[in-house]
Design a protein around this nucleic acid. Structure first.
Lengths: 255, 255
DNA sequence: CGACACTTTGAAGACGATCAACGCCGGTGG
DNA sequence: CCACCGGCGTTGATCGTCTTCAAAGTGTCG
């Protein structure tokens, strides 16, 4: 297969950085591209884990149901993100969540053994994988801490910040990339609570009208949200936001 | 150095499984044993990350302070557990938490580069590390979900279950391995809430008197706590509890 | 015996969940 | 073209849960 068929988003993945071009090309032949229509389940909670996935385009939701019918969104993935690496490396045999396509999705899927073999064969790949999973672990730990200690308002403010970093949005004005229902479920709160929280956020300098968000005072939000992690140099979200704050100061005082 | 000086707890670590004895011995020469008195800080939030640690004996607490003086316990580690591998592999330069010795602690510490080199040199080591960090990530994700969806009572019941698995306690009767203050802080709730929760737990079949805990109906607790993860085959806590439940059924109906 | 850390208990208040009603919008079908 | 519907979001009222503040009980150790 000519390597040109692989989207740039895959070739540029940090997971493959440090590999020789020919090794990368050889690895990529192990996967196949797979299209999912909006609403299609990629896998169910309880299904055997069979593949590692890289999202080429579209959005995938991980969620779990508990018997009383409630659904909790575990995470939402966009193009360029990978799925199930930790399930595979943890030797976890069955999926712990449901995965559903929120819109039309293209993923590249690789058999489970491919991931383990790639890590065995290429030291660089193994280190990239370690780095990526370590980072996942960190995010999850921070999330657990936030859920345990933050108010709903803080959680939402924090989420808005992270959105800007993940999607490279301009904090001064951007549109929510998915529905409020989904965001509320992602943050583990009720839609009603989320809705009311948006009003309170105005006091903190975040205006939300419809799907449009404006963060007026980045520095204040930074403080409001992460009084928690006062030493913030290592938090990528904070680093990215700090860069934006610095940039904003060079431009007009009020955007 | 003769390998016999290394405690069994280190030689038996899953991290070293699959390595040749001589490789393992060579690796172990890269570390040194380090004693910490009760109350001593192993490192501060914000300090540069310098070492990977394996606990030989004693208990270490990870915690974070936010400006308003509140402390949140991030995690508590016992002998046989490792610390800071994900900070190192995530290329995180500064510690994200404080680490303090809760009692007299012995750790084996290895320079940061040792961990990366070991992963580069030994495929088996890299895979063990991947497995261990993936597992950490999973635990953190589950914890985040629990914090977002469970009541205080459920959180405590769930914690009691995990204690039994981690410390190999007999659910029918065991003593809490650390103070209630610490447990409350670990679970992200106030001591008062924790204390009141213990009374409510009686209704669910868990009796707590002083530091002594008795779980009367394992099956019921299993259901009460993890109505969340109805497909539970993959959760090690559930597996371990399931085994205990099965065992309990072979003995007297009422313990 | 007193100091101190740890824990329990009570009363008040804040916060989020829940239930219910309604507004908005896009699509479908008559 | 309009009526109807379903998904989405807002708003209000109420209730239960957890936090907060305050006081007092328990235990250990010098």
């Amino acid at each position: 297969m000519p390597p040109t068929i692989y989207p740039d988003i895959i070739r540029a993945l940090p997971l493959f950085s440090g590999l020789h071009e020919q090794d990368k090309a050889a690895l990529l032949t192990g996967g196949r591209i797979c299209q999912c229509k909006r609403g299609q389940l990629l896998f169910h909670h309880g299904d055997p884990v069979t593949h590692f996935y890289i999202i080429i385009s579209g959005t995938v939701q991980f969620f779990r149901e508990n018997p009383d019918g409630h659904e909790k969104t575990i995470d939402v993935f966009k193009a360029g993100q990978t799925m199930c690496e930790s399930e595979i490396m943890d030797a976890c045999r069955h999926h712990r969540v449901n995965a559903i396509a929120l819109d039309d999705v293209a993923v590249m899927e690789f058999p489970m053994a491919w991931l383990k073999d790639a890590a065995k064969k290429h030291t660089a790949f193994a280190l990239n994988l370690l780095s990526s999973i370590s980072h996942q672990a960190h995010l999850a730990e921070v999330e657990a801490e936030h859920q345990a200690t933050m108010s709903a308002t803080q959680l939402v403010a924090c989420f808005m910040q992270r959105l800007c970093v993940l999607y490279d949005f301009e904090p001064a004005g951007f549109d929510l990339p998915y529905t409020k229902t989904l965001i509320a479920s992602r943050l583990g709160m009720e839609l009603e609570t989320f809705s009311r929280t948006l009003a309170k956020l105005k006091e903190q300098g975040i205006t939300v009208e419809g799907t449009h968000v404006m963060i007026h005072d980045l520095k204040h939000i930074e403080q409001y949200v992460c009084s928690l992690c006062s030493v913030s140099e290592d938090c990528p979200t904070h680093q990215a936001m700090a860069r934006r704050i610095a940039t904003a100061q060079h431009s007009t005082t009020q955007i």
